[in-house]
Every structure is written in C-alpha cells, then in structure tokens.
C-alpha cells in the first residue's frame, strides 16, 4: 500500500528504528485505514511491538516519518520543515491513541474505579460523575461490574487485563494498540480477555493494531494480517490468505512453529 494513501489513518513512511547497532525497523512502509483492524505477527524481535511503541510515543523514530490523519506525528512542522516532535505536540496528538500492555500496567495505588477515572477526569477534564458513569459502563462491557472498588492486586491476571482494556477505552481512543495482551496470562484466562476484544471489534469502529500470538483470534477479528521478519514486512494479506495459503517460506515456518507450541 503506498504511503501517500489519502484515505489512510496511520502512515509509516520509510521508518527506521535502531537501538544502538541493532536495527529493529528497516525502512518500513505501511498504512492503516480508519476502522481497520490489523494484526501484526512474526517471530519475537521482528519489530512488531516497536511499531506500537512508536505510535504510543514511547519510542522515537530514528529515520522516516509517521503520519496520523494526514498530519505529521513523529515530527512537527516548523516553518516549512519537519522537525522531531516535542512533548507538547505529541501530547495533543496521542490523546486519540490508547494502548493495552502485555503486563497490564494497572496503577497499584488506585482502585479499579480510580484506574478508570483518573485520566478522564484530569486529562479529558470530565466531571467525576461523567467519568464514573463511563467507568461503570465499561466495566459492564468487560464483565467486571462487581470489581469496581477492588484493588488491582485482588484480581486475577485476566481480570486485570480486562480492567486495563476498559481503562484504555475510557479515554475514547480512535486507535487502540494491543501489545501481546494475552502473553502474560495463564492459559485458562486467555479466552475471557479475547472475548472482550471480540466484542469491542464487533460493536465499535475503533481502529485496532494488534500484536499477538493468538492466531485464531487474529483470524477472527482482523481485516488484514502483516507478517514481520527482521524489521520488514515479509508478507501481508487477508487472514484467509495468510493463514490459509501463505506464499512466503518464512510465514509458513513461523505459523508452523506457533501451532506446534500449542497456540
């Protein structure tokens, strides 16, 4: 897909990310359309998570640019040039992006309710009542209404992750980044979290970028699958193409190794 796609919500244009000598993303081009659900698969270290972290502004690009809604995101205009974006510029733009982490990262100093309402109240300037109503609604969606005054440490990993999903949604993001959200969970807790995500995929038009090893889930919810290897896209296509009839040898061997591991 060409990076100049006028329809694109997110565009990566020749993005390079290096950590020291290690090149994690190697002149990467791809774009995501509004409402599209894209799954990133590939061996670990292939740069999938880095893409999410760049979009969440947790990392900065080494080279290239990222555009969101046709506006520069990794960079900002100064005069007629683009310079690396500063904190104020990023802050104004990342409000529309939410992220769910592998390790949940709930705030242990807050109850579930506070976890869900602090950012809406302080960042979005919602009233307490509005934020509370939103929190209650979202907890119902993730099936944890009875846990609203519980403490994160009193919840199972799966419950914590469902709260983390609700917390991200409380900011009403247009783009939701899901970084291996089931990888840290015990096998029996995975299904509950995936069910919540399926519901969100079916009932909303949030754009989703999802890094996962859950191939069944990827097949069900995504519009498009990107197979990464060594910082580049090795193959892309619809779920049916990638899982049903992969062309690349690397994709075949990767899928085989994932299936062998019991996923």
């Amino acid at each position: 897909m060409p990076p100049s796609d006028a329809q694109a919500l997110i565009t990566f244009d020749q993005v390079v990310k290096r950590f020291g000598d290690l090149t994690v993303l190697d002149h990467l081009d791809f774009s995501v359309a509004p409402g599209e659900r894209v799954t990133l698969i590939g061996p670990s270290g292939s740069g999938k998570t880095t893409i999410l972290r760049l979009l969440m502004t947790l990392e900065r690009v080494t080279e290239g640019t990222i555009m969101v809604e046709g506006e520069p995101f990794s960079h900002m205009p100064r005069g007629d040039r683009l310079v690396p974006a500063n904190e104020a510029y990023l802050s104004a733009r990342r409000k529309r992006i939410g992220m769910v982490f592998q390790q949940f990262n709930l705030f242990p100093n807050m109850t579930v309710r506070k976890n869900l309402t602090e950012a809406p109240v302080h960042v979005l300037k919602l009233s307490r009542a509005e934020a509370d109503a939103r929190a209650e609604e979202l907890l119902e969606l993730v099936g944890l209404s009875d846990k609203i005054d519980a403490h994160p440490t009193q919840l199972s990993g799966g419950q914590q992750q469902r709260v983390a999903i609700a917390r991200a949604l409380a900011m009403r993001p247009e783009i939701l980044l899901l970084d291996e959200v089931t990888s840290a969970l015990d096998p029996e807790l995975v299904a509950g979290v995936l069910d919540v995500l399926r519901t969100i995929a079916e009932t909303t038009d949030i754009t989703m970028l999802c890094v996962t090893h859950e191939m069944g889930f990827a097949r069900d919810v995504s519009h498009r699958v990107l197979m990464f290897d060594e910082g580049r896209i090795a193959e892309e296509g619809t779920p049916d193409e990638i899982f049903g009839d992969p062309r690349e040898e690397r994709t075949k061997s990767f899928l085989k190794s994932v299936l062998d591991n019991g996923h």
């Binding site: 947790l58 939410g98 991200a168």
Partner: peptide, 8 residues
Amino acid sequence: EATIALDM
C-alpha cells in the same frame, strides 16, 4: 509508560 498511554 501507562501514564503516557493515558496522555497524563
């Protein structure tokens, strides 16, 4: 990182 994701 979680606070950045919530734009605090």
